[in-house]
């Protein structure tokens, strides 16, 4: 029986959790919940604060070229990415909870946010629904009827006949995403989003617009001769002029 020990949940885990403050150099037991027994010991190379994780196996950092490649080709499947970064995955509860980046972690070292940083691209691979949800929001918009865009748009003679825009116009937020999102439409009422945005956004709020520009069939141009790019330009100018917001394209 060890005086001090760390808790490992599943036999596949490569980290365990301390239940008290542990000092560098201490040799502590590893108690596994799955088998309800001590399964080994570990010598600490760093101090480990209470409830922090300690590495039970060496965990290598994700190669920087892989992160670069992910940025270039973000559509690589989750399984492919996970298999490639296998040695960098932190496993707790028998499941991946994150990736080690920046530098390798040795046995007995603390694993905390400074190593277990979730790179955005990597994170999207970890959360299985993340990418799928986002993609669905882009590729399957539905149209709404004339009049639901709002007076603000019509008054400006912006020639959009049918745009589906849904955003969250909570004034407390610093950033607002306008994402053509069919799922949110079930949650939120169909209403005049632009009109409400005009009245409710705080000055200085950032508005991030989904990639409307990529969707040919997303717009129906009412007047002949109106180019799609004009529609988009008009739309952005509307936002700039009336909302005094900085616009960043996703």
């Amino acid at each position: 029986m060890y005086d001090k020990f760390v808790i490992k949940v599943n036999e596949d885990d490569n980290v365990a959790t301390s239940i008290c403050n542990l000092d560098k150099g201490e040799v502590i037991g590893v108690y596994e919940l799955q088998s309800s027994d001590f399964v080994g010991e570990v010598k600490l190379k760093t101090s480990v604060p209470k409830y922090y994780k300690v590495a039970l196996k060496e965990i290598k950092a994700v190669p920087s070229e892989l992160v670069e490649r992910l940025r270039k080709y973000p559509k690589d499947s989750r399984d492919k990415v996970i298999s490639e970064v296998g040695e960098s995955i932190v496993v707790k509860f028998g499941e991946p909870i994150g990736f080690i980046i920046n530098c390798d972690v040795e046995v007995g070292e603390v694993v905390n946010l400074s190593y277990l940083l979730l790179d955005e691209e990597l994170a999207s691979k970890l959360y299985e629904f993340y990418e799928e949800s986002y993609e669905r929001s882009i590729i399957s918009p539905r149209r709404v009827t004339v009049g639901s865009i709002g007076r603000a748009v019509r008054d400006l003679n912006i020639n959009l006949r049918a745009i589906q825009l849904r955003g969250l116009d909570l004034p407390i937020l610093r950033r607002v995403y306008l994402t053509p999102d069919p799922l949110l439409s079930r949650v939120f009422p169909r209403c005049n989003v632009i009109g409400k945005l005009l009245t409710s956004l705080r000055r200085g709020t950032d508005v991030i617009i989904g990639n409307l520009a990529d969707l040919d069939w997303f717009f129906v141009v009412r007047e002949k001769g109106m180019e799609r790019k004009d529609v988009i330009r008009n739309y952005y100018s509307l936002l700039k002029r009336y909302m005094d917001v900085s616009i960043e394209l996703m």
Partner: peptide
């Protein structure tokens, strides 16, 4: 369940920051 989880991701990423942050 799939729809609810997709919506939660969208909701979270729409109004807050990236997942994981």
């Amino acid at each position: 369940l799939s729809n609810i989880i997709r919506r939660a991701y969208l909701f979270k990423t729409s109004i807050a920051e990236e997942i994981g942050i």
